[in-house]
Design a protein around this nucleic acid. Structure first.
Lengths: 188, 188
DNA sequence: CCTTTTAAAGAATTATTATTCTTTAGCCTA
DNA sequence: TAGGCTAAAGAATAATAATTCTTTAAAAGG
């Protein structure tokens, strides 16, 4: 029997997310991936085949774990509270780092259909979940009955992308948090 | 007297904007810049020094001409009409292409302070101009007096970033336009 | 405790791409 | 129209970075 691999793929994914968030896809060099994830070059190519295939895996992992956990707030709970939860979790996720999926869409989206599709699915899901939440809120009399549900949901979906960009620009996490509070308060 | 250069720097800038929008900074190779702008390698390095210095010039040009023209809607006119104008011009600018500044912030912002500063100035200016517009709208009784001016302005600023991302993902310009109309209608 | 298998480490290679250099030829002036 | 200057074109070089290869050694089973 040969020795077992020392790296845990999930852990490597987590580490890779940080690296790609810092430098983007093309800005990240293999040397840094190797240095900052705990596995070796040969293992890398045996497991993933190429840097690009690796990126796809990392993004999918990011969606399935990080973003999934945030969106879950919208799907488990419901109404206004769910939306508050969502934004509070989302801010915690992207604060000081931005969103890997949105960054990759901005960097590669025009050229790369795979990434564009991932982005579209994510946005669609967000929109659908927001609609359900706002609908619930109306039903529970948390929002006025004449509320334009689709429009409000679309606003919320847009905020999310806006935050992802702001997270890169904001000096510190607090600034972003404050902005979010101001933004959501105004909507009541 | 030597022969005069054949290229017009402003024209080169316009052409370069398209290339960088398509492939991002690192994804754009010099060969394509040379092929699609009408000037030559030597001229390029004489004029700009490096690909990175060139990017800065192109972004600044993009801000000073394209984005400036759009933001002007907020500064010349005023009130709700100005905001409508702004979004209609902005959509025309980014439809099917996205926003060069936002893309560069997403790709390089974490690593590159110069670009981060450009992004911050842009967002700050947007926010200030929106505040002035919303204030005017309240004064002219286009919006209710209890309107939370800062919060509404922040919402609008966020939409702008959200649109920039959506423009990359939307199949066609119409989809984006429709979404925008829905979004703004809901806010009245 | 030796053999086999393959993981780890990192050196070597290859590919790509930014930058520089060389050649050619156009334009202006004298 | 000849000469000098420099723009255009693109070949050559240098730098960087992705991928592959080689060596070393750790673990499991006999």
């Amino acid at each position: 029997m040969p020795r077992a691999p020392m790296y845990d793929v999930d852990e490597v994914m987590e580490q890779a997310i940080d690296v790609f968030l810092e430098h983007g896809f093309h800005g990240t060099v293999m040397d840094e991936i190797i240095a900052r994830t705990d596995f070796n070059r040969r293992g890398f190519y045996l497991e993933f085949g190429s840097k690009q295939a690796f990126l796809y895996r990392v993004i999918q992992f990011y969606i399935d774990t990080q973003l999934q956990r945030v969106i879950a707030a919208l799907e488990s709970d419901s109404g206004v509270q769910a939306i508050d939860d969502f934004f509070s979790r989302y801010l915690a996720l992207i604060g000081g780092r931005g969103c890997l999926l949105i960054n990759c869409v901005a960097e590669l989206g025009f050229d790369d259909p795979t990434i564009r599709d991932m982005g579209r699915h994510y946005i669609d899901r967000l929109q659908i979940d927001f609609i359900a939440c706002v609908e619930q809120a109306v039903n529970h009399h948390e929002l006025r009955p004449e509320t334009n549900i689709e429009a409000i949901a679309l606003q919320l979906t847009s905020y999310v992308q806006g935050f992802a960009i702001n997270a890169i620009l904001a000096q510190d996490a607090d600034e972003l948090k404050l902005a979010t509070q101001t933004l959501l308060r105004g909507n009541r």
